[in-house]
Design a protein around this nucleic acid. Structure first.
Lengths: 142, 142
DNA sequence: CATAAAATGATAATAATAATCATTCTCAAG
DNA sequence: CTTGAGAATGATTATTATTATCATTTTATG
């Protein structure tokens, strides 16, 4: 466990925004100005293999990381790209149901809700300023 | 509607494998050997904007396209990357449930099952040969 | 047929991530 | 403590998927 890996882990554990690798990089660089982007990628990968953080495969082009290990679903704002946690229980029954209906051996599922976040709901005219990712066209939830 | 757009659409409509842009390109090139990859990307984008095909945002790095317009979920084999359709009814109740639980205005969700396809179930020793995409590590269904 | 708008093919550009590699760090054994 | 092997780092380059540019060609329409 190197200093840089420790700090990447710490920064992720106190960040609830499901940051992308480059956001983690920016935050970590405040404490380690000479760290390289490659080191951040490498360690995010290693930490998620070790089960200390989670790598999220949500929609959008960039991977996101979560220092919270509990299982939970996410909502994405289709306007500003913000990701929030959802406190809905895990739907294990879905996997069992599908197991009986198809010839795959089901081991799990990914569920991501799409919606409009409170901030974007207010400023419907112009999207919320701290936009982080590409918006989703509402007709394309697939 | 140009000849190339027509053929891209046709090839997609008779392909049930949820192909990526480059797979569509390879197939279309059998009929139009001089078509460029950029044209394929451009037309897949246009056709999905027009609602003639669907652009799928599944896990993995590449986008996939579907000539079948009906709404349905998908299963992905975590070993070989194959995508199959799932004949489970759309769970609109989930969106309503979440609407009451959180402050987002929910407009839909994305659900993708992860499992082991019949072919990979048989050849458990070595993954199925017609592998198309990177496998998913079973510990990382997020 | 003319012609304006749209699309094409070729190519370059971008964005996110992964790989390479010489140098530096970490940590357990002495 | 020192040390030495293996792992990790920073700098850099490479890869992969996708998008943008642009001169030329095609399409649809009057």
């Amino acid at each position: 466990m190197t200093r840089q890996r420790q700090i990447i882990l710490e920064e992720l554990q106190k960040d609830y925004s499901h940051p992308t690798a480059s956001v983690v990089y920016l935050k970590v660089r405040r404490r380690l100005p000479h760290i390289s982007l490659g080191t951040v990628y490498r360690n995010l990968e290693i930490l998620s293999e070790q089960g200390l953080i989670k790598k999220l495969e949500l929609s959008g082009t960039q991977k996101r990381f979560d220092g919270t290990l509990s299982e939970h679903y996410h909502v994405r704002c289709f306007k500003c790209g913000r990701i929030s946690d959802v406190s809905m229980e895990t739907l294990t029954a879905l996997d069992e149901k599908l197991s009986e209906m198809c010839d795959y051996e089901i081991i799990g599922h990914r569920l991501e809700f799409i919606g409009l976040c409170p901030k974007c709901k207010k400023n419907k005219k112009h999207a919320h300023k701290t936009k982080t990712t590409t918006p989703i066209s509402p007709g394309n939830i697939s």
